[in-house]
């Protein structure tokens, strides 16, 4: 295991940010911690990096207990949310920094720093100051600075949060490629579910200082364990036990994804409340006997295109698509 976390707890005064958490992350994994702000994911990352000391519990990196070790004694490196580049140093000096404090000889230092900079396509910017770079470029410098010291584990704290959408999508692909190339463990904190689904081998969903569920993107989407996961990862139609019993004969909280709700000529009658055009799909909000449902239909479906607000449509849901929640 690259990282084992046992009973990890962090309290700030009366507030419990992380609540007796257990987590195992495999070597070479792209692992994401996904959750709303204040859910404790960043605090866990900071305890792995050593910036916060846990109130209780243990952090093990490759079976070595580092719980009370200082950040400079841990073989992990961090890419900060706002990059934290040293403003008085040039790009190359920023990247060299970790090697310099490790007393790597100057020649080797420069070579390795340039190599890291070319990995993030910034070799031409070596002599600039961080203030002269765009947000995306600073992001790359922060990445180069962290990978140049060859950590076994790279921690990324919402590294793409400050970038615009197009750049973010480009950086996501580059991050994934970089992780494959380096073969090291990436731990990625984000509140953006699309980003987590795109990048990750496995995702932990955080809520109120606890992990609701850990799984592959597909598992989380197709088999969410709780209502929170169902709603946080993708869009969900959640039925309370009573409603679920009436519709499907299952006396438990259940969930179905919008694309599994079929609109057509057979099934129960429902009223179209809202039509939202999303490009590749059309999203309908319909009222089925007082229960609001979200249905998503391919935009190439000619029948679907004809449904207008206020129209009556037939709704069909298959019991096999239904997921029981706990």
């Amino acid at each position: 295991m690259a990282i084992s976390i046992r009973g990890l707890t962090k309290k700030f005064g009366d507030f419990t940010a992380v609540d007796s958490l257990d987590l195992e992350i495999k070597s070479g994994e792209f692992f994401s911690m996904l959750g709303p702000s204040g859910s404790g994911k960043t605090t866990v990352l900071r305890m792995i990096a050593g910036f916060e000391l846990p109130t209780q519990g243990q952090v093990l990196l490759y079976d070595e207990d580092v719980t009370n070790k200082a950040p400079f004694d841990r073989d992990v490196n961090t890419v900060f949310q706002d990059y934290a580049l040293f403003p008085h140093l040039s790009v190359i000096e920023n990247v060299e920094y970790g090697l310099k404090v490790r007393k790597v000889p100057k020649k080797e230092r420069l070579e390795r720093a340039m190599e890291a900079l070319s990995k993030v396509h910034l070799a031409d910017f070596a002599d600039r100051k961080p203030a002269q770079l765009s947000g995306g470029q600073r992001q790359r410098v922060a990445l180069a600075r962290a990978i140049v010291v060859e950590p076994k584990i790279l921690l990324l704290d919402e590294p793409l949060g400050a970038l615009d959408l197009k750049l973010r999508e480009k950086m996501q692909i580059e991050l994934k490629e970089l992780q494959r190339e380096l073969g090291i463990t990436f731990i990625f904190v984000t509140h953006d579910q699309d980003e987590a689904l795109t990048l990750s081998d496995r995702i932990a969903i955080f809520n109120n200082g606890k992990i609701e569920q850990i799984g592959t993107p597909q598992e989380l989407y197709e088999q969410p364990a709780t209502e929170f996961v169902a709603r946080f990862v993708g869009t969900a139609n959640v039925f309370e036990p009573e409603q679920s019993n009436k519709l499907f004969g299952i006396n438990a909280q259940t969930m179905i994804r919008p694309e599994q709700v079929e609109l057509g000529s057979t099934g129960d009658s429902a009223e179209v409340l809202e039509v939202i055009y999303l490009g590749s799909t059309i999203r309908f909000i319909v009222d089925l006997n007082g229960q609001q449902l979200i249905a998503e239909v391919s935009a190439s479906d000619d029948n679907a295109k004809s449904y207008r607000r206020g129209a009556t449509v037939k709704v069909k849901m298959s019991k096999t698509d239904l997921v029981k929640l706990t």
């Binding site: 200082a70 992990v76 961090t78 900060f80 934290a84 040293f86 008085h88 970790g98 310099k100 404090v101």
Partner: peptide, 27 residues
């Protein structure tokens, strides 16, 4: 000097004195 400058320096392997000398002092 943002707090995360000190964290970044420590994260990259610098002990306290090195952080003071190479990051805080020049800034």
């Amino acid at each position: 000097v943002p707090g995360n400058m000190l964290e970044a320096s420590s994260d990259l392997g610098a002990k306290t004195f090195t952080t003071v000398r190479r990051v805080i002092f020049p800034m």
